[in-house]
Design a protein around this nucleic acid. Sequence first.
DNA 1: GCCATTAAACTAATAACATTAGCAAGGAGG
DNA 2: CCTCCTTGCTAATGTTATTAGTTTAATGGC
Lengths: 188, 188
Amino acid sequence: MKKQEIIELCVEIVDKDGFLNLSVKTIADKLGIKPPSIYKHFPGGLGEIKDALMTYGWQRIDTKIARSAVGKAGENGLKAMCYALREFAHEHPGVFETVCWHNSYTSEQDQEMTKGVIASLYAVLNSLEFSDVQKMHVLRTLRGYVEGFAMLELHGSFGDKVSLDESFSYGVDALISGIMNGGEKICG
Amino acid sequence: MKKQEIIELCVEIVDKDGFLNLSVKTIADKLGIKPPSIYKHFPGGLGEIKDALMTYGWQRIDTKIARSAVGKAGENGLKAMCYALREFAHEHPGVFETVCWHNSYTSEQDQEMTKGVIASLYAVLNSLEFSDVQKMHVLRTLRGYVEGFAMLELHGSFGDKVSLDESFSYGVDALISGIMNGGEKICG
DNA sequence: GCCATTAAACTAATAACATTAGCAAGGAGG
DNA sequence: CCTCCTTGCTAATGTTATTAGTTTAATGGC
């Protein structure tokens, strides 16, 4: 039983029952072993497992986002990446919860881990005419919107009378259009 | 010792040490009593306390957001509310964490509680020419952006080379401009 | 084939926490 | 003065994370 396999079982646990249900006990049950045996694989205990799951999550997100923008530049690349990140949140709600949440307790490392994702985003941003500072603004803005929207919809905070897909598209379009127009008003 | 006073001590705990540090023990310590005594005030235990804290948080947010938009219509009202919500997150990081996160486990009630905030936002949206569906899109988009941005900055996920205030303004401007222009590109 | 090492499981024990049950002090109102 | 309600307490239970020490089975060198 390799670390990687255990982490993949953790993915199943959190995607099915939520991040709060990830405990030494639930993992041990899923593995068919007793809780203390977990410590042979992860001496750092639950904390180390959560860290590993977060890292694994970021890697998956990185891969998915990078692929989504292959062959796309500028505006279209940015949109594709936004959609890809939300899609990941739907496919792996528990992992998404983990990367959103667990990072509050290891924030130094977090920046290292998001570098992969940021690198992909930067590659697309480089196809546009933005200053370095502007690129950072764009990146933070998009990340804030997509992670915030996905978090809220996963938590059921939005109701469902109006289509969530349409709301998301609306927001992405508004955001990208606002960014491309440099925040100016439409002519006159 | 009234319920309300206990909740206000909980606000101090979470704002100082984070939502994860809110336990029956930490509350009892702060009150100078033993853990079991807490159950005389909140028979539902920690869950009831967290629910009460979330409700209290939403009330405070509602008040702050509603006040921020007094005398402002349309675009300016929307911007003021975005800034007010982020400001609340800075003033009460723990409470903000609570309303963002704890709702995952009581999502039915959550929609009830956010109605106050939504009512204020709707009042401002009514000063614009949007359809009901569009209003809902705008509301979700703004909430997603502001909650997401605030959550990420509170978790230290953004680094600090570039000013967070500037990034936030940039995003709000882009978003509002995109919304007001109906997602269209600038002339020609 | 045999022994030593190591990996990976186990049981037993400890500590922290939430929670329940039952008891006790003190004040409010008759 | 007695009663009840509030609000505290201690004692006990159950769950979880974790550590220590033991055992079992496989692996690698001889």
